[in-house]
Design a binder for these strands. Structure first.
Length: 973
RNA sequence: GCCCGGGUGGCGGAGUUGGCAGACGCGACGGACUCAAAAUCCGUUGCCCGAAAGGGCGUGAGGGUUCGAAUCCCUCCCCGGGCACCA
């Protein structure tokens, strides 16, 4: 953009505050902070406790930024918005007497470094470390007051040793439903032995191990994944195109079950939901987590299967009141009972009420000459070929196949056909539904597609019928859509229960009571939340501390043998296997043949074990990093009890947790849910003292940037575009403006380095804080930066002689008006700091400084009474210039622990206040009224004013509204 | 489709237990300094009418409640985000 506002060197005073001087000052103070250990936050005990005694009477404050990934491109100016916000707040808290912990580490495992390694052969560790070094440099240059001792990276072997340790804690735990908490697996075995229905003594070694493994919070499971044989790896949903092919290389992707590690987060669904209530998070984030967990209250109902006396199918429903309207049943295609109940031939008997024959459509899309098992097989393949995206893209067109079997509705004994269809998901509820097409839109669509009967059992109200132009008598099959609202039950009774005439909620209650009494069903709560798929076929991740013995069952690597270090490999790519749907992935770690098997003595002699070759997903390391910040050098534990209790502990009676956690809303669900889950496991097992990690969560906004396209629609370098004549131009060519994320592809990246060079870090910090509230997204505008730069320049000039560099400060008191403004500013800024309202804090500081500029203009010197508190108030926002002014004003050492100014209430009250005088709600005049005047006095003062008198002349005052010290409104007729 | 946020000058944004709309900054315009420019400093700046005094209009649109609405209620439009066959 236009560079004309950038200060240029020339015949300027030697000590003018410009980019050059700012950079000098900034480098000086960044070095001093480092040497003087200004931001070291002492622990109460242990390695990092130096200096604690001096702060032992202070309260603690733990400020945290979300863990950044050290990308090769480094930071652009959009990244540090939140980091600056936490730094300003942390510095403010430090000045109000807190022992503040603020640190920054790196979530450094991940795909980009691995892909770069695949392309170049450069080891991901080399790339990662270079990127971390660059980001550290950029953050240091921003003047962020981090404790450098605590900046861990997930790729540090000393760090992932403890990630592995925590995984083993999860592996070695089970969820005790009665106690509603996780317990060590060692406590499970006596319970299993004591359960006569298990018959422990009769079980083989393998059976015992498998039984125990099935209770673990980390377990192996056959999970449906996006398997791409050509790439040799499973892919995330985001990596699969709408056509069901790989994003990279356009290879076929298949949905198939693969044996994968899963973490039993679903055991915590209820607590993850309930404990949200006590957290200081925004409602929208809580809502997103609630929706994700997706609690649903209903009933499980047992349906018999005709001709299979020993088989029954449990369905989950939230609408047990519609049981009498069930006309068919659907199982998920993968449901294990499908193979048990499937008929060998298509039945032709008239079994179900209202059905006279098997409809041709029921045999599915595979023709009438295939048998049910063949149709089922074909349908399963058809479903497996489809990606998630395709299933969604196909919208509401329902597909499915009849199994040839019939279920028996327990409420009336009716036989209803059983289908499989992909609109029923194996992972939710029981993987089976009863279908009530009259009162469920999906079932309605399926029933119409498959020519199935539709019976109304909830009478819709008149309004609904008339809205849809349906007559009272019309059969439900003629409805344009299902009726899902509230109505009264009809045609819904048997010998034991009648729902007729009952409203939906009462009918559900009555039906559930009956189901429970007859043992045909029971109340049940289900969740949308699924267990967490925890394996990745990657190199650059934490190896699992798991080995397999001759039974091919998993065994934990003993703690004494941790860490399990990543082996060196030459090729970081997953092995490309034939394009075979049934092939097995060979993760990169399989190539480290010396590593993949290991001879160990686990107490029963040296044996050969096979290692787990998958690695953990990137989320693993970020699940607990905040705990390692507390005690990063501890070699005996992932965190000491003392450090955990000190930094995470709450005030008396408070829940505790991190005092302020700032990050983007994109982590609203995954990271925040995973980390809460790990924290709760650690809490249950007694390793941490708090049940929730993040007490207060704040979501910062994003910085967007203008991007420009030329006539061909190609992005052009935004930095070269000039604004003139109300348009944007690249040279002489007009270009189109749009706004988007800052990035290479839009050619609109602005880096902090660019801004330091032209204005300095303090200006960048102040600019980012001033452009809006921290939680709002806003467009970047390099042009606007000059505003806050001028502010710092004026502040500097008010205090320092631009020629000599000497401070000029007047010990004489300031005038009353300025003093009053000072105290108002202190009160306002303190308030704004507390609420993270940094933009308005900056505005108030500019206002005070503008007043100071006037005073200096008149008197040639700034009163100390104003200057000193102003410097201290500026310090959290623009710390380098504040430190420098503080020093030049004659102080030794850093101001980082100087007390933040406190307003004198005496100067906050005004003797009189200007109030607007309204006639019929319109402002017609303004008058000074004593602040202390009550309604009567105010009215008297106002009525006595000659201007008001003339305004009211000839008018009838019907009513007078007086709000003391606010306004007076005359209602005239 | 469902669920959340949000729409205020040319721009970023202030202001909500209902009480002076537009703080602060950018830009724009005018002035000082300068041979000139930059930088800096001073002033003006919501829109319309008016020489001015003053008046009218104005917080996405329309309606309502109220002495008084950016703020509360109803209907609608637009933008951003989340979820998406969850039985």
């Amino acid at each position: 953009m236009n560079d004309s506002a950038i200060p240029q060197p020339g015949d300027l005073p030697r000590q003018r505050y410009n980019a050059g001087l700012a950079n000098e000052i900034e480098a000086k103070w960044q070095n001093r902070w480092e040497i003087e250990r200004t931001f070291w936050a002492p622990n109460p005990t242990g390695d990092l406790s130096e200096g604690f005694d001096a702060l032992s009477d202070n309260k603690k404050f733990f400020a945290l930024d979300m863990f950044p990934y050290p990308s090769g491109a480094g930071l652009h100016v959009g990244h540090p918005l939140g980091y600056i916000g936490t730094d300003v707040f942390a510095r403010f808290k430090r000045m109000t007497g807190f022992n503040v912990l603020h640190a920054m580490g790196y979530d450094a495992f991940g795909l980009p470094a691995e892909q770069y390694a695949v392309q170049t052969g450069q080891h991901p560790r080399v790339t990662t470390e270079a990127n971390i070094a660059n980001m550290k440099r950029q953050m240091r240059a921003l003047g962020l007051g981090h404790d450098p001792r605590r900046g861990v990276a997930t790729t540090d072997v000393d760090y992932y040793r403890w990630t592995q340790w925590i995984f083993l804690q999860i592996f070695d735990a089970f969820y005790d439903e009665q106690a509603d908490r996780a317990r060590p697996i060692s406590e499970l075995i006596p319970l299993l032995k004591a359960d006569p229905s298990i018959g422990w003594d009769a079980l083989s070694e393998r059976e015992r191990r498998e039984l125990v493994d099935s209770h673990r919070l980390a377990y192996l499971d056959e999970a449906q994944v996006n398997w791409c044989p050509a790439l040799g790896t499973v892919l995330a949903n985001e990596e699969v195109t709408a056509e069901g092919r790989s994003d990279r290389g356009n290879h076929p992707v298949h949905r198939r079950p693969l044996k994968q590690w899963k973490l039993r987060i679903t055991a915590y669904a209820e607590r993850l939901l309930a404990d949200l209530d006590g957290l200081d998070w925004t409602d929208s984030i809580k809502l997103m987590q609630r929706n994700w967990i997706g609690r649903s209250v209903g009933a499980e109902v047992k349906f018999g299967v005709a001709g299979h006396a020993d088989a029954s199918i449990d369905v989950f429903t939230t609408r047990s009141d519609t049981l009498f309207g069930a006309t068919y049943m659907v199982l998920a295609p993968e449901h294990p009972l499908v193979d048990v109940i499937v008929a060998s031939e298509w039945p032709n008997a008239t079994l179900a009420e209202g059905l006279t024959d098997i409809r041709p459509a029921w045999r599915g899309i595979f023709g009438s000459d295939v048998s049910p098992p063949a149709a089922i097989h074909s349908y399963r393949e058809f479903v497996a070929q489809k990606s998630e995206l395709e299933r969604v893209a196909e919208g509401k067109v329902k597909t499915g196949v009849f199994t040839g079997a019939f279920a028996v509705n327990p409420v009336n004994g009716n036989q209803i056909p059983i289908f499989i269809a992909d609109y029923v998901l194996m992972g939710y509820g029981t993987g089976a539904i009863m279908a009530v097409p009259a009162h469920d839109q999906r079932d309605f669509e399926f029933a119409n597609e498959f020519d199935l009967p539709i019976y109304c059992v909830i009478q819709p109200p008149e309004t609904w019928l008339s809205e849809h132009a349906i007559s009272q008598e019309a059969p439900a099959a003629d409805w344009p859509e299902a009726f899902t609202g509230d109505g009264v039950g009809v045609r819904s009774s048997n010998d034991g229960v009648s729902l007729d005439g009952l409203a939906v909620s009462a009918a559900i209650q009555a039906m559930n009571d009956w189901l429970e009494a007859t043992e045909l069903g029971r109340p049940r709560v289900t969740y949308k939340l699924r267990d967490w798929l925890f394996s990745r076929q990657r190199y650059w991740g934490e190896p699992f501390p798991i080995i397999y013995d001759e039974l091919d069952l998993p065994i934990a690597v003993p703690n004494s043998m941790l860490p399990v270090e990543l082996p060196e490999v030459v090729n970081f790519e997953p092995e490309i296997v034939a394009d075979d749907v049934d092939s097995v992935p060979a993760p990169p770690l399989a190539r480290a043949e010396d590593w993949a098997t290991v001879d160990l003595d686990l107490g029963d002699g040296v044996k050969t074990y096979r290692r787990e070759l998958n690695t953990m997903p990137q989320w693993a390391g970020s699940c607990w990093y905040y705990l390692r910040y507390l005690d990063p050098t501890n070699t005996d534990a992932f965190v000491s009890r003392e450090a955990d209790e000190y930094w995470m502990g709450g005030e008396e009676g408070e829940a505790g947790g991190i005092d302020l956690y700032v990050g983007g809303v994109e982590h609203a669900v995954l990271h925040l849910l995973y980390a809460r889950f790990w924290h709760k496991v650690l809490f249950d097992l007694g390793h941490v003292a708090t049940k929730e990690p993040f007490k207060r969560l704040f979501n910062q906004g994003y910085i967007q940037a203008a991007a420009f396209t030329d006539a061909r629609g190609t992005y052009v370098e935004a930095a070269d575009v000039v604004e003139r004549d109300g348009g944007h131009f690249l040279g002489t060519e007009p270009v189109q403006r749009e706004f988007g994320k800052m990035g290479k592809s839009l050619k609109n990246v602005v880096t902090p380095d660019d801004i330091y060079g032209n204005y300095g870090a303090d200006t960048l910090r102040l600019y980012e804080m001033s452009t809006g509230p921290l939680d709002a997204s806003r467009p970047w505008s390099t042009r606007d930066i000059v505003g806050v730069h001028r502010f710092l320049q004026r502040l500097w000039r008010n205090v320092v002689d631009e020629d000599t560099g000497e401070a000029r400060i007047d010990p004489e008191p300031a005038d009353e008006e300025t003093r009053r403004l000072l105290h108002q500013t202190i009160a306002g800024v303190s308030q704004d700091m507390t609420t993270l309202g940094f933009n308005t804090a900056v505005a108030k500081l500019i206002t005070l400084n503008n007043r100071l500029t006037q005073v200096v203009g008149e008197q040639g010197i700034a009163p100390e009474e104003i200057v000193v508190p102003l410097i201290l108030m500026v310090a959290p926002l623009a710390p380098h210039i504040a430190e420098e002014l503080w020093e030049r004003a004659g102080n030794d050492g850093s101001l980082s622990r100087e007390p933040f100014p406190i307003a004198d209430p005496a100067w906050l009250v005004m003797e009189s206040v200007e109030v607007p005088i309204q006639i019929n709600g319109k402002v017609r005049h303004r008058l000074l009224v004593p602040t202390s005047a009550d309604e009567t006095e105010t009215e008297a003062v106002v009525r006595a004013d000659p201007v008001v008198g003339s305004l009211l002349e000839g008018k009838t005052v019907r009513k007078v509204v007086v709000v003391p010290a606010r306004l007076v409104n005359f209602v005239v007729g």
